[in-house]
Structures are given as C-alpha cells and as structure tokens.
Design a protein around this nucleic acid. Structure first.
Length: 952
RNA sequence: GCCGUCUUAGCUCAGUGGUAGAGCACUCGCUUCACACGCGAUAGGCCACAAGUUCGAAUCUUGUAGACGGCACCA
C-alpha cells in the first residue's frame, strides 16, 4: 500500500467523524462492561448566538482529549453537549431582526409572538457551534444533547425556584439595582463591567440654606440626580458643618425643602465634605435614606429619560441632556461653584457597553448565605472542587464566596424562563409550578404571571444535574434512563454520571457559572457537581491582547483547521501550559502540522515495507499491561495455534528476564520498547494531573526523535531488505506494532490522523479494542490506551543506546566541522571498556550506516596516525584517520574548544567539591554523582590534551 | 485601595532547590531509496533587578521596576 507523499488533513477529517457518530462510539452505551467505572464531563454550554472561537477550541480540545483517553481505558464515558439560551443576546438579535425586516418593535407583535420568533431564530441559527464541534472531532454524545430551555430543564428551573421560594431563600424586594437603559433590564453585579472615563466631570453645586444667606456645596458626577435629592449629608464630627445639621436646604430647580443630616457614611476629608443624598438612584444613598427614613424619589424612566418627578422642565429629557441642563440652570442661578475635570470609572453593561444606571427597582433575589456556606464547607473540608491550576483560582474563588451578596435573578426580557409567580389584583404573590397550581393556591382568583424571566445563569447553574434528567419533581421517574442489559436494574444517568469528573472552562465564568453550579448542585442533589475544575488560559491575539471584534485581532479556528488541519490545531492548543495565556502564532500550529506530516510519512514508510509484517496483539501485550487482555490473548494464542512472527516476539520478550534480553534482541528493539514505555507512563501521568502540554512534549519528542530519527534509521536495512525472510517479517511486525502503539498514545490529541493511519495498518482490528468494546466495529478510538509498564523500562538498553548515539554524533560532528563530503568514507577507531566494545561491535552495521563510515576498529587503545581527527564521549574515545583531508589548524581549534568547554564544567565541579560544607551537607548520592563526573571529565580532558599535543 | 499572576535564547513559550530546554528564526552542510512540512552539524541566555534563607537559588522569602488580571471604592 502506498500513501500520498504529504498528509492531506481534509480527506481524513471528512469520513471518520460521521462513522464514529453513527456507530455510537460516543455514547456510554458502547461500553459492554457492567462493572465499568463512569467518567463524565458536561460541556460549558455555548450561547446559541455564538460561533466557535479559539477559547472554545482550546477547551473542547482538552475535554475531548480527556474523554478519549478515559474511553480508551474502558470507562463508561460521557461528554454531554448542549447550548445555552443566552437571554439578552438572543433577545437582542430578534429585536434587531424585527426592526430590520418589519420595522416593528417587540411591543408591536406582543410577547407570545416574540417568543415564537425567538424559538424560530434559535432553530435556524442556534446550531452553528454544534456543527462546528463536529469539525473539531469532539466525541460528545449527541443523543444526549441538551438546551437550557428544553422541557425537562425548564421543569427543573421551576422546581428549583419554587423550592427556594418556599424556603424563603428567594424573595421579591425593592432595591437599588444595576439598570441597563438600552436593554431595559436589570443586571447582576457580575454582568456589570468597569470602564475608565478620562473626560469625566465633577460638578460642585451650591444649595441655599433656608432662612440664611449661606449655601452648602455638594459635588457630584451625576448632576441630574439632584432632582431626586431628599437630603444633604455631612459627617457629624465635621466642625465646618456642625451648626448646619438640622437646618433645611431649598433644593434648587424644585420646590422641595430637604434636611441637612449627619451620617457616618460621609467622609469629611473627601470633596466638600457634604454629600447630596438621592436614595432612589444610588446604593449608598439608599442606605443613608433608610437610616434617616428619607423619601425615595425616582426621577428617571427605565429607558434613561427623566420622568415627571424631575419636573416639567426636565420630563422626557435624556439623562445626559438633563445633566447639561441642570448645570446650565445652576449657572444661571449663580449656584454653580465650579466644574472640575475628573477621571472616573463608570459601570457599563457587559454586553452593550451602555452606562449602567443605579436605580430603585423591584426585583427577585436569591439569598446566598446557605448555599455559600455549603460551597465553602466543600472547599474547606474536601478541597472540592480542586482547581487546576490551583493557584490562584482556589483562593480567588473562596474569597469571592466569602463576600457573596444576594443574587438578582429577574430580568426584564421575554426570552428565557418566565418567573413562576402570579399576582392577583391586589398584588398578592402566588409562586407555583404551574398556572393551575397558582390559581388553586389563590383560591381560584384570576391571576397574572410575572412578566420577567430568570437570569440565564439561573438555569445554567443547574446544568450539572438538570442535563442528566433531574427535574425536581417529587417521586418522579427520571426522564432519561441509562439502561444496561448487563446490570440487574435500570440506572439513571443522574445516578451514573453525577458527580461529573471534571469541568473545563475559562476563568471569566468561575463566579458566574462554576460557583453557582457547585452551590445549586450540592443543595438540590446532595452531590458534588464535579471533583475537578480545569481553568484554561486565554488565547490572545497576535498583538498579545484578548481577541475581540473591536480590535480585529481574532483568529478563526475554522480558518486554522482549513490551513493546518484540525489535528495540528488541536495538539498545538493542548501544548499550551494549563491555565497560561498564550499569544496566538501560526508558527506554533505549523510546527504541529509538520509533526502530523512526520507521523504520516513514518507510517508511509512502514506501509511501503509491510509485506509479511502485521500489527501484533502479542507484541502489544507486553507494552500494554492489562491482565484481562493478556489472559484473553493467551486463549486466543492457543486457539490459533499458528506460527506467526509475532509469536516469537511475545513469547521470548515477555518470558525472558530483562538482563537476558540483550542476548536475544537487538539494542534498537530493547531501546525503543523502553522509550515507548517510558513515554506511555509519562503521558498517562501527565494526563492524570491535567498537564496536557507535558503529554504533548513527550509524544512529540518520542515520535520524532526516538522513533523516526533513531529507531527507523537503525532498523531501516532490516525492514527494507529486498529478500523476503523470516527475519524481515519479524522486523516489520515489530516496527508496525510500535507504530500502532504510538498512534494510540497520540489519538486523544490527534483523532483524525491516527484513525486514518491506524485503519491502514495491516493486522489492526477490533480485537485490539479495550475489552469493554470487543464487539464494536474496528476503530482506534476504542483500543486500549497504553499506560506503559515500568518493568519494560530498560535502563541498560538506554545507557547502551546513549553510547551508540553519542558515538555517531561525534563522528558526524567531525565530518561536518572538517567539511568532509558524505561521499568520502573513512574508518572509525574506537577505544572503550570491554563492555562498551561489545556494544559497539554488536551494533557495527548501524553505526557504519548512520555515521557513514566504512569500517570500525574497536580496541582498548587508539592506534592511529597523526593525521587523525579525534573526539571523546562519556563511554569511548574515537579517532578518524584523515590523511590528506585533515585541516590541522581546524582540528586544533576544534579540540581546544572542546577542552575549554569541559574544563569550564570541571572548574565548577572542582570548586563545589572542594567546598567542605557541600561535601558534608549535600546528600551522599549527589556528592558521589559529582565525583564520578569529575573523574570522567578529567579523563576526557586528558585524552583531548594528548590528542592536541600529538598534533603539535 | 486590597489580592494575585507574569518577567528565561532574536521571537513564541516550557521547566526544576543540585551542570539552562523546545519550536521557529539565524549560521554551515546535504537532490542520504518515508518525509525539504525533510536530514545532519553548529551558534545563541548573569533565567527583570536587589537583598536574604541555603553547602548550593533561575527555582524558596522579602523588596524594587515593568506588563497584566481580579475585587472593592469612586460625593
């Protein structure tokens, strides 16, 4: 079989996903093992208005790698997908559409029609992300896809709301809230962002004191709110104003007389020391107002214009127009003291950037005390959830919880979960799970439902359990059941998959979403939502700033997929240190595109030389320790009773003691098995601790350096021998088996490429699957993930191979430095210990080939002419006679450089070892290690000096 | 104001209380029968700065500077 010369990702990406999905590989039902441990992840549901960005691609890559890795280990694995209804975003889209296409406002068509259109919009445009996720190769279970407004999830929302209300944890109250005049809805504290305005103004207004000719000056950044002032406050200890407390101010532009009061809230040091109090438009003033029983006068409408309370002059004016007018009027009255430039940070709406107006409004709130304590207790007693990276997120999360305030959950929108509260004509509230129930509660009155909907995060806060069928109905039969013919009963998804194992998300929604899931899940199911939370970093634009439309520095994942392939993009994203921000650069992806091509071509080479060889389960058994599989294969072996090449490999390798293997196996084979196992162990360990970048580094260097640069080159002659032979078949079987194992290790990161190649390898089949998936159609994604075995890490082989590699590198170095053409062959003289002499002799053909040498002369000493280039390694000294080719000047320089380098190291060592306190206090092994190295260096330097002298 | 993170090779980034690493770029070779998206060989760092702890610090502590993030306040 011959592959194309270069890897074309598109071809591989087209077919496999469809087959995986249609074959049910993504569903937990594929697992036939009744005793399988569950592993579950719920996706952070993207907004239906969203399209895939790099942050998603990063998070999805990590979730998919974890999911595939666990699935390959035989876990009953579920990665649950879905989307969020995204209240404000969808509402805004539909309003825009309505305006553009029909020149209508929501009020023109009414609530029912509006909601109908929002659903239509969602059906039409809400699947962008889910389609893009298929392109990513995400192994999510589409049969369990959820939407936050699905019937069962909505039922869960109503039940949670009612329960909290009945417990007194949800209440309706009049508070100063964050109001967005553009969206005309209240916002929670978390949806308000700060924006610094350098051109702000601080306006000083003089208020006349009644019955005197005095004035009292207050400073404000929002002059228009003075129309709602109901007091002026000073600090009671402020000598300047002591005698004014209790006096009355004639509030300009109005007919009101308001008191001067003393309150400790006022900082005498700040501004004029006197503060205008507007209880209906400022949270602090609101509190002052409560303490002094002040009137609350709302002077603004919900769209940011002034209302009748502001007076006929101002009624209907926009808040900013009114602001200017107030200042003008004060100027006219001679009551404007001054206007200072003032840098101010303003609260703005997270989504539309409109300046948020603090305003008095009646809203629904959740008391967070009880749930906060639940979450804090989880963290304190069990460290749950465990954040990766732990620093700084655990501390920030905990500190936030400790200062948690009540949560504003009502939103003045139509798209979302309408609040299950009804009112009678007298304003009595009836909270119920349905209108019928509410009417019943009211004794049959005619009721009107609260027109507000719930904060989107209220429903997504239930995501960790509502997606598994929890509705909160008492004694209900759970809606979604996982049925297994292998268990005695029926276990619900909720029982099987909650708590989920890990949540992967960005740090921006730790408070908004993560914390609320922790609290609500514990409260309503008694379970933890998840054990671990992996917080990914932010993918920044090429300019080092967060990607955004306004900066136009975004990088579209789909474009990267098209340009470099999905797998290359995925493994690049996985190569970023967990939690670290990364500045995007295409070169990084290109590196992994090249890596993908390298894998392709290594496989291409193996396939070009695969006749007589095949992937062997027996070869693999020794590098994938799975007792169940090994037992199965023993049986299989007996059953087959056939003489296959892999038989030798398995029987001999697994049954021979490690120190005996050298007698039977080539160094290259012992070495690559050792490296493969070391890599598998490292990758497995890295994934267990969410160190994805470490796993990627290990795989990259194992595959490229160890497998391609050394193993393939070392065994190339055996593999490509023209004559068919039993030895050639065995060699081919071995390299195919190592390759197959490598593809499995790579699969969680590069699913398409590995499946494409694995399917082409001779001898692959469903018998290689993890025993939980024996019956499934053949696919790499259900094979056993290699976890490696320490028993197969062969230190002797690594030391010996290291000596061979060093030797070859020195010879290559001499050739390069001496500018000797590869067409010129030469003899290499080697002096080494007798043990190493054996190693070099045993690998002579490989050394000759890779060093492009003609012959080796191995002995105890070097016996070479003066015109030779020389070098030393840790294990040998070598010389290459180069009569007529050697440039003595260059050779002297080369030797001197090496001596200088080694001497520098030795000087450092000498210093350290002559330090008495080091020798005394450092661990013995460390001291010994340095002493050994010191002797080694002494020898090498001595040899090089002699070499240099012999050139003089 | 409070809390926190980062500062390592030209660039983008890993990393560990015990001789500094990768990819890319650079330099020098190579039409070597899988791969030029390649192969081979070099070069390149007082690990921001200062002090401390330690036998030993790039790694731990404190401080300084710069970059960034979160929270709070803002009359």
């Amino acid at each position: 079989m011959e592959l194309a010369k270069a890897y074309d990702p598109k071809a591989a990406e087209e077919d496999h996903y469809k087959r995986w999905e249609e074959s049910g590989f993504f569903t937990p039902e594929i697992n036939q093992d009744p005793a399988a441990e569950p592993f579950s992840i719920v996706i952070p549901p993207p907004n239906v208005t969203g399209s895939l960005h790099m942050g998603h691609a990063l998070q999805h890559t990590i979730m998919d790698a974890l999911t595939r890795w666990k699935r390959m280990q035989g876990f009953r694995t579920l990665w649950l997908p879905g989307t969020d209804h995204a209240g404000i975003s969808v509402q805004r889209k539909v309003v825009e559409q309505l305006k553009k296409e029909e020149h209508k406002s929501p009020l023109d068509i009414g609530r029912e029609e509006f909601v109908r259109r929002a659903w239509k919009w969602k059906e039409l445009y809400g699947n962008t992300i889910t389609e893009q996720m298929r392109r990513e190769g995400a192994s999510v279970d589409w049969t369990r896809q959820r939407f936050t407004m699905d019937d069962s999830l909505s039922l869960a929302v109503r039940n949670v709301f009612c329960t909290l209300y009945e417990e007194g944890q949800i209440y309706r109250g009049l508070r100063i809230v964050n109001w967005c005049p553009k969206d005309k809805t209240v916002l929670s504290d978390l949806e308000v962002k700060e924006e610094t305005k350098k051109d702000g103004k601080l306006t000083y207004l003089k208020y006349p004191v009644k019955g005197t000719d005095k004035t009292i000056t207050v400073a404000t950044t929002r002059p228009e709110t003075m129309l709602g002032d109901t007091a002026v406050a000073v600090n009671g200890n402020d000598e300047r104003y002591k005698d004014l407390v209790g006096e009355t101010v004639l509030l300009p532009l109005t007919t009101r007389e308001i008191p001067i009061i003393a309150d400790e809230y006022v900082d005498a040091e700040f501004g004029t020391g006197a503060v205008k109090i507007t209880p209906a438009h400022d949270p602090n003033d609101y509190l002052v107002g409560q303490r002094h029983e002040l009137q609350q006068i709302l002077v603004m409408n919900m769209d940011g214009t002034m209302n009748a309370e502001a007076g006929p002059e101002f009624d209907g004016l926009d808040r900013f127009v009114a602001r200017e007018k107030v200042v003008e009027e004060f100027e006219k009255l001679g009551l404007l003291e001054k206007v200072d430039d003032y840098e101010i940070t303003l609260p703005v709406c997270e989504r539309c950037k409109t300046i948020v107006e603090p305003i008095l409004s009646e809203q629904w709130f959740v008391k967070m005390d009880e749930m906060r304590d639940l979450a804090l207790e989880l963290m304190r007693s069990g460290g749950v959830p465990h954040f990766s990276p732990q620093v700084p997120h655990e501390k920030v999360y905990t500190a936030w919880l400790e200062n948690l305030k009540d949560w504003t959950i009502s939103r003045q929108l139509w798209w979302g979960h309408q609040i299950p509260a009804w009112y009678d004509e007298d304003g009595n509230i009836f909270v119920a799970r349905s209108e019928e129930e509410a009417i019943a509660k009211s004794g049959g009155k005619s009721l009107t439902q609260d027109s507000d909907v719930l904060d989107t995060w209220f429903s997504s806060g239930l995501w960790a359990f509502s997606t598994f069928g929890w509705t909160g109905d008492k004694g209900e039969k759970q809606l979604i059941a996982y049925s297994s013919q292998l268990t005695d009963g029926i276990q619900t998804d909720l029982e099987t998959f909650l708590p989920t194992d890990v949540l992967v998300t960005g740090r921006d929604i730790i408070f908004l979403w993560v914390s609320r899931m922790v609290m609500l899940t514990k409260k309503f199911t008694g379970q933890n939502a998840f054990e671990d939370v992996v917080i990914t970093g932010t993918v920044l634009g090429k300019d080092g700033k967060p990607m955004s439309k306004s900066r136009n520095n975004g990088v579209d994942p789909i474009e990267m997929f098209d340009k470099f392939g999905v797998d290359a993009t995925r493994i690049y994203l996985a190569s970023i240190a967990t939690g670290a921000d990364i500045r995007w650069n295409d070169v990084g992806v290109e590196t992994y595109r090249n890596f993908a091509n390298k894998i392709w071509n290594a496989t291409r080479f193996c396939l070009m030389n695969s006749d007589g060889g095949r992937v062997s389960e027996f070869a693999l058994a020794i590098i994938t320790p799975d007792p169940k599989r090994q037992a199965y294969m023993k049986e299989e072996q007996t059953r087959r009773q056939s003489q296959t090449p892999e038989r030798d490999w398995y029987e001999i390798y697994s049954e021979i003691a490690i120190e005996e293997r050298a007698n039977v196996y080539s160094l290259a084979e012992r070495w690559i098995i050792s490296r493969l196992n070391r890599t598998a162990i490292g990758v497995h360990r890295a994934l267990e601790t969410y160190q994805f970048h470490e796993a990627v580094q290990l795989l990259y260097h194992f595959f490229w350096d160890d497998f391609c640069d050394w193993y393939i080159e070392l065994v190339k002659d055996d593999i490509t021998a023209e004559q068919a032979s039993r030895e050639r078949d065995i060699s081919r079987t071995r390299i195919l088996s190592v390759l197959e194992e490598s593809l499995r290790l790579l699969h969680p990161f590069m699913p398409f490429l590995t499946e494409e190649l694995w399917q082409k390898l001779p001898g692959t089949g469903s018998y290689l699957h993890n025993s939980a998936y024996e019956d499934a159609e053949k696919t790499i994604m259900l094979t056993q993930f290699p976890t490696g075995s320490t028993g197969l890490v062969d230190k002797a082989a690594e030391v010996e191979m290291g000596a061979v590699i060093d030797l070859i590198k020195k010879v290559r170095n001499i050739r390069a430095e001496m500018n000797i053409s590869t067409s010129i062959k030469f003899a290499v003289y080697i002096a080494a210990s007798s043990a190493m002499q054996q190693v070099f002799a045993a690998n002579e053909p490989q050394i000759l080939k890779l060093a492009k040498a003609e012959s080796l002369v191995i002995g105890d000493t070097l016996d070479v002419p003066k015109a030779s280039a020389k070098a030393v390694t840790n294990d040998a000294s070598l010389a290459i006679p180069l009569e007529g080719l050697i440039d003595f000047e260059k050779e002297r320089e080369r030797l001197s450089n090496q001596i200088a380098k080694l001497t520098e190291e030795k000087t450092r060592l000498d210093g350290q070892l002559s330090n008495a306190s080091f020798v005394e206090r450092a661990p013995v092994e460390k001291v010994q290690e340095l002493r050994d190295r010191q002797i080694e260096l002494e020898n090498q330097i001595g040899t090089l000096r002699n070499n240099l002298n012999s050139l003089e």
